[in-house]
Design a protein around this nucleic acid. Structure first.
Lengths: 144, 144
DNA sequence: TATTGTTATACTCTATAACTATA
DNA sequence: TATAGTTATAGAGTATAACAATA
């Protein structure tokens, strides 16, 4: 074990890659990839829909990438674009009935995959990890 | 804040993405990307050189991806492929003088970038993060 | 002038399959 | 028969720039 394996940047990328791989494999049975699943979740958990710009900020993606993801989900009948009442430039993404059902099934598979990939850590340690990362992510979502 | 922002898989991918982005930007001044930097580090920290297969296992990459990375570093004069004495199939990757100097400069920039990207966490919290992730990564490196 | 959504383009990363030479 | 390195290819992810409609 050399210095690389103690590098925090490397470790994040390494573990994240494994977790994304495992999650993608699990979600494939529902016809979804992690990115699409994340967009679906954001739409599901919002009352009146989310603008694509807001999604991009939360996801850490370029707005143009969100367009493609919403396109795919819309084509699959899982989400819909609706005109925003207050701002005619914006479109709010909302979830269809099928989208909500899909999300339920996908959430179970995704959670299992993540838990499996992080097997070496106890539930308490996974909670610690979640707390630390969410602090970093929260700052990033605000400043972008 | 909905359920997505509490999802451990999402948080890992989100933070990892930001850190890789920041590190790539910092390493660009040395003409390197994180992947190349990781390979350079592995070669630097080995006495007699590392096989590409071993690198692939540690990095969590397909062996064919390592070929391309070593090609790029070799073309830049930073590493060299040498025949393995014990196994004529294998080639050991070693570092040149220029490679060692490049690594020194790159390491400073990379460390700064990671520390900056994880700014919301104290040094102790970053150490906790490192310890947790290294346990997961260690298991993954063995089983693949 | 700035912002939302969008299209387009190029580049990097990821996933597979196949081939060669050795073991 | 299995392993190390390699080549090739297609698909997913990332990074920019530009544009129309609207604020």
């Amino acid at each position: 074990m050399g210095e690389l394996t103690e590098d925090l940047g490397f470790l994040l990328a390494r573990v994240s890659g494994d977790v994304v791989r495992a999650t993608n494999a699990a979600l494939a049975e529902e016809g979804l990839r992690v990115r699409q699943y994340a967009v679906l979740l954001l739409a599901c958990d919002s009352r009146r829909g989310v603008s694509q710009r807001a999604m991009a900020r939360i996801l850490g993606l370029d707005p143009s990438q969100v367009v493609a993801l919403v396109d795919e989900l819309a084509q699959a009948g899982l989400v819909e674009r609706q005109p925003a009442p207050t701002d005619r430039r914006a479109k709010l993404v909302t979830t269809t009935e099928a989208g909500h059902r899909k999300r339920e099934r996908a959430a179970v598979r995704a959670a299992d995959a993540v838990r499996g990939a992080l097997g070496p850590l106890s539930a308490a340690e996974q909670a610690t990890l979640r707390e630390l990362l969410s602090r970093v992510a929260r700052v990033a979502s605000h400043s972008e």
